[in-house]
Design a binder for these strands. Structure first.
Lengths: 183, 183
DNA sequence: GTCTATACCTTGATAGAC
DNA sequence: GTCTATCAAGGTATAGAC
């Protein structure tokens, strides 16, 4: 029954995006949900378990997207991905990759593996999208599709980081330019 | 006399790049230097003071670079910047922007301002370099030079993050491709 | 400038009742 | 599944001697 578990994951997701994994505490979770920290520990014995659950939810969402967007053209799929980041931009939050990869060395092996899995999944998806788009004549770019995927995801991730720090419509400018570059 | 202050800054710089600002402690500083944590507090009353000193050192280094490279061609200057990131890649450390911007919201106003100053300085420098290079015929790219600077710095920053998580020569591939894209 | 000593708080985590 | 109660450990920071 308990959707407390899901509420905890959702809140932890938000906290990771705003404060970072190492800066949020069980109290940051339990207080807003009006429960005690022991209740959080019931669902997630330790913090790494919670972190892993958050990443797994993100991976599941990515897989959902991959499935739902399967019939779309490569450039429509790219637009969908950019739209996800635009949502984050409006909320002034960052992406999980941008939040978790800098702290990678402080994570447990199990959590490191999940971070790796998430990064690989997103990059593989983007590389496929770009390669297919290039073959279909939707995109035009030089070099390996995977390298290009690294650059596109890197720009999307950083646009959120820079936006929070520098203000202005950095996200809009970067996402527009990276789209243009692919035509 | 005491160069303890500088040793503390250097060590803190290293720790920020590996564990992140919120994950390292005064003990991480005092133990390797064989001093007590009170001695660290003597030099830096609170943690934000230390963080600010680290960022100021980075800004000073950037300004040194700007000064020393003034006579170099734009593409030689770009190569110098890439070389700095290559060094970080070899050390498996990340850049300060990549480490500090995700945790931005957890910082004191004074430290946030320094992070902002650092980001602006690097981006302005890169934008000038690119614009000058384009005018001189060294570089060729579409759009605003500042937007391009955002994308170049974003790629350099992310190449270090991805390299640590995914292994392989991601830095080499990304830096090579971004250089090619500017020709 | 560095030490000893310590205050005070927050943290992640556990035991056992309900 | 959630609570009360509690814990040990580690965190930042300060006071005062040397």
């Amino acid at each position: 029954m308990s959707n407390t578990r899901e509420k905890i994951i959702e809140l932890a997701d938000q906290l990771i995006r705003t404060k970072g994994f190492n800066a949020f505490s069980y109290a940051d979770i339990s207080a807003p949900l009006d429960i005690k920290n022991a209740a959080v520990h019931y669902h997630f014995p330790n913090k790494a378990d919670l972190g892993i659950a958050v990443i797994e939810q993100e991976i599941a969402r990515l897989n959902d997207g991959i499935h739902q967007w399967k019939k779309l053209s490569p450039d429509a799929r790219l637009k969908k991905m950019i739209a996800i980041f635009q949502q984050r931009y409006k909320q002034r939050t960052i992406c999980l990759v941008g939040s978790l990869t800098p702290d990678y060395d402080t994570f447990s092996p199990a959590m490191q593996q999940k971070v790796q899995e998430m990064c690989k999944g997103i990059l593989d998806w983007m590389a496929d999208c770009l390669e297919e788009g290039r073959e279909a004549g939707n995109f035009s770019f030089e070099g390996d599709a995977y390298d290009r995927a690294l650059m596109v995801m890197s720009n999307l991730m950083s646009s959120l980081l820079y936006s929070r720090v520098l203000g202005g419509n950095i996200f809009g400018r970067m996402s527009k330019q990276l789209s243009k570059d692919l035509i």
